[in-house]
């Protein structure tokens, strides 16, 4: 269930939508890309590098960044993670590999059903 987002966010990658669905299934509250962290600045103080984690899970006080295994992207992301740790040591971030979870979701009946789990329905506890 998204927080402070009146309408469903437009996810950049299908893996993000899957992740959001899984969070909804478990009743974990999330916000999509709620905050950007400045990481590097030029001589004039203009931000030259920033980082916007994909999700924030408020109850866990945890940011989640879904990542690929592509080396060139990985290197850039690792740099951002290193800078995040240096500049914002109190911020918890989990770098999570994008996972093909469609088969598992189908096995557990979550794929179609996830369409129907929205808002407060996701907070109900299963029997």
């Amino acid at each position: 269930m998204s927080l402070k987002q009146p309408q469903a966010p437009s996810f950049v990658h299908p893996a993000e939508e899957m992740f959001a669905r899984v969070m909804d299934y478990y009743g974990v509250r999330w916000i999509y890309e709620p905050r950007t962290f400045d990481l590097e600045w030029d001589a004039n103080g203009k931000v030259t590098l920033a980082f916007t984690p994909d999700f924030y899970l408020s109850d866990q006080d945890l940011y989640v960044e879904l990542t690929t295994l592509r080396p060139q992207l990985s290197t850039k992301k690792n740099k951002k993670m290193r800078l995040m740790a240096e500049l914002y040591p109190d911020i918890n971030i989990k770098l999570m590999k994008r996972r093909e979870m469609r088969d598992l979701m189908v096995k557990y009946g979550l794929y179609d059903q996830a369409e129907h789990i929205q808002g407060t329905q996701a907070q109900k506890k299963a029997p």
């Binding site: 899984v22 974990v28 899970l57 945890l62 996972r99 979870m101 598992l104 979550l110």
Partner: peptide, 12 residues
């Protein structure tokens, strides 16, 4: 917490 909540191990 996520690993504990993820009973179906969807997140790996």
């Amino acid at each position: 917490a996520l690993a504990m909540i993820d009973e179906l191990n969807l997140l790996g």
